[in-house]
Design a binder for these strands. Structure first.
Lengths: 211, 211
DNA sequence: ACGGATTTCGAATGCCGTTCGAAACCGGTT
DNA sequence: AACCGGTTTCGAACGGCATTCGAAATCCGT
């Protein structure tokens, strides 16, 4: 029944994830290549997932879940460390942007899946609101709001959401437009060291939440 | 001799720009459609530009030039208004991000060309460094550095470049991930009013350049 | 061992961008 | 006016792509 708990469906997802990480261009990902790597045929993709796009979406959602779990785990750690006092602002920001930064610098991570996917969502037809569901899923970001509100009680929730959104924009710029970042900073920052990059981001984001 | 000053070459660029603005998905742009709208044939694209990708790149470069001219014009205005004193920080930031914001909200502008192009550059093969040349062209951003340095002399050029880069990331997030911004801010900001959005961005970016 | 549902397969379809040789067109020279 | 080399346009291919679909094959409860 077109199940995706199937064995070959799993193999297709694994193959797709692997190819998306290896391939440096999205066009390198073809149904035939996925099928070969999964020891299946292209039609298996249509059968199990409906289309290649939906397969990619399923893979991206899986990777997203892992990343978000890491984010929320770091947030929880930051909160617990200071409870019942408000958590440390720098630590909360690091929990928000840290995993993305680390993943994007770790060649063994599946981060390329996410950057390929977000650009694919724009490339492909809007008839797939399936995509927006994944991309616009901000529940895990919402989890940061109450804690930031404790840190900066003079900001209302709109202010905090806005600053959260800006922080995510900075994150995207650094992870996705690396060469631009390099040139603008005159190669003066070691963008390969996640700790340095995260510290730089905290340095810029933290003031948004101070008076 | 494969000239792009040709009449039909111009018509191809215009058709491509128009289609890129209308089409909400990048895949809606096909060589055949461009050709029809330009009263030409698909092979004319290959003949005049080498490939469809290069045609899109040429169009994007043209649009970029217009946007950057507007940015630099606003910067000059901000500088002249206060000369010989340093320009107003808020005005400089508005010059940096304002045109993008206004264009992205103006349905008659060609801003969609740019968002389609940047995502296409990631989608397509890296064998086209032609793309990076356009995207990573940050000279016009560099023009902001000396003026920001006068405003915040305690920052070195790396600091300023980094903050500039962060500001651009915030800009991209707002123009390109609108629905995400909406949800995170609980629909509490009127994202259709460029003045409000720009003011919000200034509110967040300006503190980066204060002590 | 059977039989209905599920899964796999392979050929066929229609679109895509690009190539290529032939036709058309152009402006300057006889 | 006829010619001609260089430039541009065209239309018919080509290979590759995702997807569809009917027929095989496989699976599993009986």
């Amino acid at each position: 029944m077109h199940g995706r708990a199937n064995l070959t469906a799993m193999r297709l997802m694994d193959a797709c994830e692997h190819l998306l990480c290896e391939a440096e261009a999205f066009e390198d990902l073809t149904a035939r290549r996925i099928a070969i790597e999964a020891h299946a045929t292209p039609s298996a993709i249509s059968y199990h997932f409906g289309s290649q796009e939906e397969l990619v979406a399923a893979v991206a959602e899986r990777v997203y879940r892992r990343l978000n779990a890491e984010r929320l785990s770091l947030l929880r750690k930051a909160v617990d460390r200071r409870a019942p006092d408000p958590p440390d602002l720098d630590e909360v920001i690091a929990a928000l942007v840290g995993p993305s930064i680390r993943w994007s610098l770790d060649p063994t991570s599946s981060y390329p899946v996410l950057s390929h996917f977000t650009s694919m969502a724009k490339t492909h037809r809007e008839r797939a609101p399936h995509y927006r569901r994944i991309i616009d899923n901000v529940e895990h970001h919402r989890a940061f709001v109450p804690h930031l509100k404790r840190i900066a009680p003079w900001l209302d929730e709109v202010d905090i959401g806005w600053r959260l959104n800006c922080a995510l924009g900075i994150r995207s710029q650094v992870t996705r437009s690396r060469s631009r970042t390099e040139v603008l900073t005159n190669y003066g920052i070691d963008l390969d060291d996640p700790d340095i990059v995260i510290a730089r981001m905290v340095e810029v984001i933290a003031p948004m939440f101070r008076r």
